[in-house]
Write a protein that binds this DNA or RNA. Sequence first.
DNA 1: TTTTACAAGTTGTCAGACAACCTGATCGGA
DNA 2: TCCGATCAGGTTGTCTGACAACTTGTAAAA
Lengths: 246, 246
Amino acid sequence: MGINELKKIVRAPRLSEEVSNALETKIARGELAPGDQLPTEKVLAETFGVSRAVVREAVARLRADGRIETRQGSGAFVAQAPKSLNFRFWQGDGPALVELRDIFELRAMIETSVTELAARRRIPEDVAAMQRHLQAMDDAIRDGSDGSEADDDFHLAVAAATHNTYAYRLIEFLGRHFSDSRRLAWVDPGRRETLPEEAQAEHRAMFEAIAAGNPARARRCAQEHLRGAALRVGIDLATDLSEEGR
Amino acid sequence: MGINELKKIVRAPRLSEEVSNALETKIARGELAPGDQLPTEKVLAETFGVSRAVVREAVARLRADGRIETRQGSGAFVAQAPKSLNFRFWQGDGPALVELRDIFELRAMIETSVTELAARRRIPEDVAAMQRHLQAMDDAIRDGSDGSEADDDFHLAVAAATHNTYAYRLIEFLGRHFSDSRRLAWVDPGRRETLPEEAQAEHRAMFEAIAAGNPARARRCAQEHLRGAALRVGIDLATDLSEEGR
DNA sequence: TTTTACAAGTTGTCAGACAACCTGATCGGA
DNA sequence: TCCGATCAGGTTGTCTGACAACTTGTAAAA
């Protein structure tokens, strides 16, 4: 059974993934420049030693990512200005623990800027939505139930207040994968006390700065909150992100 | 020939696209909730009246988008949270300028934070790399050749100085697809004068702040530069991102 | 010279088969 | 009864061969 677990972890990547990864790196390295024609599916199948079906799936993935375009009867070409692009955060199962710090730091950077922008753009409806989720978290704390969902919702409401679709989607993406509860489970599967009161106090500070339309204070509060959230899961961003200048 | 042009524009979407779009909307509408198992490929092929190969390509695309996951021998399931972020910036016929503004604004937010962090983390090698690309852009300006590549490289060097893999990759992604030159071509295909001297002066200011290890000044310079870059392509982020507090 | 027709090459689709794998049920022994 | 091994069916992954739809360049015809 030890073998079985190993096989699940080190499982061989699907053939189509190997092929698409190989092509992707070739494109990234510039060996295949935008506008270049890819080898025909037949040739690719022979060079990789797989069937044409596998090649077609790999091509389908690259096309979905916007990296290449195919023209029936003509060939497949490296895309110049793709219609849509996928930013793939990681390949395979997920990020390694070492990388968690990097991801969390990135999230902190983005979320502080987003909070600042929210303080400039928020309209009354945004403020009402934030307040609603704040209240939901209050209730959860009082009842002793799980407030992580309300936590996530609050952050999403802040992102929505920027009225910037892509900022919202980026926050949504990072939040789904790296909300406090999930981080906790990864970094230290054992412990469970999230100290929600502390987080909630920071939330309220952020909220008031945003509602008051004070971008500078909103940024500071967000920094504070994200540093606190990091500390709560054992990551120390303090020296990097808290000090202001030198 | 009018017919022919029409056929090129209104060309019937590929079968696999039809299928993947149909599945995508079903997921978006909630008819297929996260965790739900999709019908088997055989069933899908029958219901859509296509072959299994087409279904497999559609599934490959959705898997590339991170919307579903497949387990061999078990089935295909709606993913809980997508593993990649999808950026769409063409709405059918042309680029959506509103979204372009959002994307550019997001890039400005991230890049200012990244520049600030670079000023804290840079090591001598980073400074040397930045200087090298700055010099390359100087040369390009003097020769009148295209300096956009050196421009991109400089920004990448700044991102590298954060020593944060994910921040670097995000900047690389946004830069590759939304560099100044590309933006120019999209927003206003006619004009071409990038005013590289102006950009270069801003670059140098950023560089000096980073080299001096002054995060606050680095952030201000980056804000200045990105606001300038936006203006040069006709997007005005000034009122939102320049003022400090209220 | 211009137009038409054709042939070769390429991607898109189809059909059937087998391999690898997972899941639940069945059955035998304790 | 309980438990473990075995088995059968179903599902995705891959292979093979074939044909359809389309593009492109070339050669023949006007």
